[in-house]
Design a protein around this nucleic acid. Sequence first.
DNA 1: ACTCAAGTTCCATTTTATGGAACTCTCTTG
DNA 2: CAAGAGAGTTCCATAAAATGGAACTTGAGT
Lengths: 261, 261
Amino acid sequence: MSILSAAVDVLRCFSSTRHDVTVTDLVSLLGMPKSNASRLLRAMRDEGLLETVGDSKRYRPSLLLSQVGHIYRFAASLIDRADAVVGRISDEVGHTGYISVRRGTDIVGVTAHPGRHALRVVTSIGDRIAAFASSTGRALLARLPDDEVRRLYAGGFVPPSDTAPQDLDELLARLAINRREGYAESHDEAVRGVRAISVSVGDPTTGDEVALCISFPAAIVTPEERLAIIRSLGEGAAEIAALTRDPFFIPLHPSIAETAP
Amino acid sequence: MSILSAAVDVLRCFSSTRHDVTVTDLVSLLGMPKSNASRLLRAMRDEGLLETVGDSKRYRPSLLLSQVGHIYRFAASLIDRADAVVGRISDEVGHTGYISVRRGTDIVGVTAHPGRHALRVVTSIGDRIAAFASSTGRALLARLPDDEVRRLYAGGFVPPSDTAPQDLDELLARLAINRREGYAESHDEAVRGVRAISVSVGDPTTGDEVALCISFPAAIVTPEERLAIIRSLGEGAAEIAALTRDPFFIPLHPSIAETAP
DNA sequence: ACTCAAGTTCCATTTTATGGAACTCTCTTG
DNA sequence: CAAGAGAGTTCCATAAAATGGAACTTGAGT
């Protein structure tokens, strides 16, 4: 056990609901002796990974981490491109847009563009949600062959709501539809009343894959608006796929993509 | 020398111009034996601090760092409040807005809102500029007593242009004006043709201090627009200062703050 | 197939981390 | 205001990990 892994464990303690940690937090969260916790936090602060909050005994991530974390977006330039596309669409339609990446069976939001509507979907960057029960997750899972999806979910899963896939077979059936149509959709899955539409695109040179998603209250969007969102997302993702020469890109089905005469 | 400090040295290698590193990069940048560089990068990747780019030998910051770095903004909630204010003003006037923090004699950009104008100031998050030669820097230095400024610049400084303070006395004189007027301004300092206006505010409970800045091409802003920007920044900062009960807040001079009848 | 640059592995030595216990500091409470 | 509790720090011998030079492997370009 290197001190490096202990330090990373500390970083993993931070979340959208825990912005700072203390020695005792580490003792209870990680079960480490408090002598270690005390020295580790001080060492991480001395090295510049953490900052103390005011003159208290609380530690939070440092400016350095903020800077390095920011570079992730540019290093993974696919994210930047996708973010630009989602930002533009979010601006046009006024609904919340975000982009996410998959880590195993989890989806993590990377960037978000809040909508303008009074009734808007609020997303939290950095939180993990289940891939199988979200449109972003299924848009990304649809890029995998069924075998690999089966392997990922060998342990089964617990559906969070009635409209989410109830078992592996239903998930695979929905992924098959996603592959045919070129987009994924969710309704009342993680949050009631919320609908979301996602497409995915990858960059074979870096191995990155991201989902582009627009999320909106189901009640206030007309069928025409919904179709326009699907088309915008599909077109944006197709442009990126052309740039990266993504071999696994799933284009919109022609019957959806064709614009009215 | 703990491996922690070596790992942090690696993180410091990343910049807006270096999005990923290799073993040889570390050997030349940090002068470490390549055996160490090789193991260190692998260990950092295994722990989740870095990711390999595709299947190449290049390493970039990981999603984890992106997530933790994001938390910095919320942990330092002053930054979030200031960012909201600057974002709104940037939207209104169409010019680039950003917020920065001070680390010693350096200023680091934390968030930015690009302007809408065709001619716009582009800032890069995470890069360091000299505090004495920027409006954001002087807005933050103005919060310190002269003694402390003298101590910071005991080693003197090299002015980057004719319009920047040429020596410590001129810097102190300009800080005195900033304290009286309630804002700081730069013109042709870091970048020719660029003007910037900054105010600063702090949070005594966390010890954080940030500068709010609007930056614009000198040629296209009228005196009335400039005054409106100063007033917007001053009012926004004053609202934050009231929330945090900032004891060192410098309000706008009444002759500037008063709006036309 | 050859060459060179880049990266990885090996190993004895040196340095650092570990965790229990004693100690200090700082609030809270009687 | 003193006792007590909770939180954090320091100490120390032991256990574990990092170091760096050299040998070895990989891979891209000729």
